[in-house]
């Protein structure tokens, strides 16, 4: 690491992809993934069932398990629970910062993860969505509560505009998204917080 100037330029037309707020249950149900163009460096996206494309996600939950695997190619697997399910997190040697951050956090702990979702298909046809972490930091319970509110609001916003733009029409067509199912999920997630 050097002291300065290593920030990739974010002006000049390149706009950083926002980190979508999504509950574990919705992310787990995502299947459709695509690239914007055929070029190698073109960003990859998954389409969430509530109708928005995600290149990056922001997750806050409870780190329940972590495991170090591989020896040449060292990487960490971790599980992070939110009120609706579990996120699968990976950090390998291409994410040295995230890897070393995970190494220092002992479960159980509240953590915040910024990362890129990927869809993996096993030869048997099973599908797994995992998030390749860019960073993982341990946070307090208040941040976790704020995230639940934030994610609930984002999910409801997406449901309100479902079918009104190209991506969300595509999501409806592909997933046959039932809004009431996701409203129930949001409601149940919120119900775990104290009024």
């Amino acid at each position: 690491m050097n002291g300065q100037g290593s920030l990739p330029r974010q002006g000049g037309g390149f706009e950083r992809e926002p980190a979508r707020r999504v509950f574990a249950q919705e992310l787990r149900e995502s299947r459709l993934h695509f690239r914007e163009t055929m070029e190698e460096k073109s960003p990859g996206f998954i389409l969430l069932p509530t109708g928005v494309r995600a290149n990056r996600v922001f997750i806050v939950g409870t780190l329940t398990e972590k495991e170090r695997r591989g020896d040449q190619n060292l990487f960490y697997h971790a599980r992070i629970a939110d009120p609706t399910g579990t996120f699968f997190i990976m950090a390998g040697s291409y994410q040295p910062d995230a890897m070393q951050q995970i190494a220092r956090i002992e479960p159980p702990a509240f953590v915040a993860v910024v990362g890129k979702p990927n869809v993996y298909e096993s030869p048997s046809g099973a599908v797994l969505i995992s998030v390749r972490a860019e960073s993982i930091t341990s946070v307090d319970a208040e941040t976790r509560n704020l995230w639940i509110l934030d994610t609930a609001r984002s999910t409801l916003d997406r449901l309100d505009t479902l079918g009104k733009d190209e991506d969300s029409r595509k999501a409806l067509e592909h997933y046959h998204t039932d809004p009431s199912l996701y409203r129930t999920m949001v409601y149940n997630a919120l119900a775990q917080l104290k009024l």
Binding site: Q10, G11, E142, N145, L146, L149, A152, R153, L156, P179, S180, R183, T184, V186, Y187, L190, A191, L193, K194, L195
Partner: peptide, 30 residues
Amino acid sequence: EDRILVKECSKRIYDPKDLATLLNRAGEVV
């Protein structure tokens, strides 16, 4: 240009009123 030069900044605080509003929103058709 493309950057916000921050003058003041504060941590966001958890407000139960937000929770009530969102519960109502989510519960509309549940």
